[in-house]
Simulated scan of single mutants.
Amino acid sequence: MFWLLSSLFLLASSGNAASNHKAVLKSQLQAQIECKQYLQFVGGACEERCKLLVLRSWNDSTGVVGLPLSRHYPAIYVNDKSIVRTNNCLQCNLREIPQCDSCVRASISLNCFDRSYGSAFPSPQLVPLPDLLHLNVIRQCAQMLQISPRELAVYGSSEFLLNQKASCLMRCIMIREGLYDDVRGPNNDRLYVQCGGYGTSEEDFKRKSQQCVDRLKTTCLDNCTLVARITKECYPPGAGLLDLILSLLSILGLSLPLGSLPSLPSLPVTIPTLPTLPTVPTLPTLPTIPTLPTIPTLPTIPTIPTLPTVPTIPTLPTVPTIPTLPTVPTVPSLPV
């Protein structure tokens, strides 16, 4: 059993196109090629049943699953008349086929769809995620956001609106399953297929859900809260993705009754007494500073009178230069 679960989780973790995250898109031709590989060495295996199983459009107990199988045919041929014609074909041709003969029943069912809707077109369509892959996505998002199993149970009981972290978990799940984009919003085509039609017509479903989404976008919510509010308020209750996630949490034992959020742990009754601080000694009184005597006002110094201006001394005339006297000749000495 352990190895079986391990193999299934490895299959759940296998990569898909990055833009679609965990969403799986396949055409009938792709499913047929896969089944030829799976059944190559198995004698007596039926290819049509395998193809419907790959497309998640068959259940051995209840038979063919109309949605998503009808998505593989041109939309112009999928109408009320073709649906009635398909149902009549199934009732008439499966009446005599034993329930245990699932291969024949699957082959007849696929033939009824081909006769009512025409040839399947080759473009890949959404393959609804089974519960095992839903659980894998929930666990991966909880691990990425570091959410414990206890927190996961609490967030589920609040329908992922308890706080920012709870809402971001729902956003991660929606993006991881390829059902939401922050720019384009929810993918209502895929949501309608993933949740089995919500028990209403596709036209009404898309119109009402889009009106709700447009209304919430005008309230300026952050990205995480917007996704959580859209998931809770914009889709019919009882059959939506939120209901599926809550039921899976219940299977895992990670659910609490709605409204029974765990109480916070009580604080200790006795608050420890703080130690008494030592008394600060009183500082001695500073002596009073004596008042300084008043400094008397100094008498006003009388203004010094302006001294009279000293008259300018006239310039003395220049003394003429005395001419040099001629040299007196030396008198010769007289003889004695």
Rank of each mutant, 00 (worst) to 15 (best):
C234I: 00
Q99M: 14
F2M: 09
S70F: 08
P296V: 11
A12G: 10
L298H: 13
S13Y: 08
I147W: 03
V269L: 12
S266V: 15
L29I: 15
A228Y: 01
G196F: 00
H21R: 08
D243L: 10
G15V: 06
T312Q: 07
P128K: 07
C234A: 04
V84P: 03
M174G: 01
T273H: 11
P302F: 03
Q143S: 13
P281C: 09
P257W: 03
T318Y: 06
T330I: 15
T297R: 11
G185R: 00
T86Y: 05
Q37D: 12
N20P: 05
L241T: 06
S255I: 03
V54K: 09
K26S: 11
S57W: 02
L258R: 11
C212T: 02
Y235T: 04
V104E: 08
C220N: 10
S109M: 10
W3V: 13
T218M: 04
K51D: 09
G43M: 09
L249K: 02
V54S: 06
P98S: 11
K36C: 14
A166D: 12
G259S: 04
A153W: 03
P265D: 03
A31P: 08
V331Q: 14
R190P: 00
Q91C: 07
S266Q: 14
N59A: 14
C195L: 08
S148Y: 10
C168K: 01
I97D: 03
S109H: 07
L5M: 15
Y180A: 01
G156D: 04
S167T: 04
A45N: 08
Q143V: 11
Q211R: 14
L298Y: 13
R95D: 13
Y198S: 10
M1L: 14
G43P: 08
T231P: 01
A153R: 03
R95F: 15
Y155D: 06
G44K: 09
Q28P: 08
L242H: 00
D214N: 00
S70E: 13
K22A: 11
L252K: 09
P311A: 12
V328S: 06
S158G: 10
